[in-house]
């Protein structure tokens, strides 16, 4: 009996491995932490763009309205793509757009905004990229929608028309 049992058992294990490998083939091997939504806005402090002033997160998100945090840089090409969409969102009354300028030269950032206009109500400087990490971001651009100090939506990569209408629906 024992002799018969072992080959059967072994075959079963190999069948299992086969199934797992087969299923694994169809999964992406690139990791993206998109399902992790941190509920609370992280606490951080940073310098403001164009002003010699430090602000903290609790000051920025004090009011009870919607905030859109957008991480951008003048050297990032997809940021150019999504810029017009940000300009459109800027028109919304109850939405404040906060830019986090990621690892950028101030001059380049200025000319970027002069060229494409400034959609941001407030820009925080992130010279060494640590503020973006507090947000759980790992690239530019990334966008977060905040309501009542909670992150309710996170978009990795540039905004598109779909995510734009989603944001509009949420903010209404």
């Amino acid at each position: 009996m024992k002799v018969k049992f072992f080959p059967f058992f072994l075959s079963l294990i190999f069948v299992l491995i086969f199934i797992v490998f087969y299923k694994g083939l169809n999964k992406s091997n690139i990791y993206a932490p998109d399902n992790i939504i941190e509920k609370k806005v992280p606490s951080f402090s940073g310098k403001l763009f164009n002003q010699e002033k430090e602000v903290t997160s609790s000051e920025i998100f004090a009011e009870k309205k919607f905030y859109l945090v957008n991480i951008w840089a003048s050297w990032c090409i997809p940021c150019r793509e999504e810029h017009s969409l940000l300009m459109e969102l800027n028109k919304m009354k109850n939405l404040e757009i906060i830019g986090i300028n990621y690892k950028d030269k101030t001059d380049n950032a200025k000319s970027f905004l002069n060229e494409l206009k400034n959609p941001y109500d407030l820009i925080i400087l992130d010279k060494n990229g640590t503020i973006s990490i507090e947000w759980g971001a790992y690239g530019v651009p990334e966008t977060f929608l905040i309501s009542d100090k909670n992150i309710i939506k996170k978009i990795i990569g540039p905004l598109n028309t779909d995510s734009l209408s989603e944001i509009k629906d949420l903010v209404k």
Partner: peptide
Amino acid sequence: SEFANSLKSLVKQ
């Protein structure tokens, strides 16, 4: 990469 460099600064901080 930029991300790695930022993370290095963050760990130091």
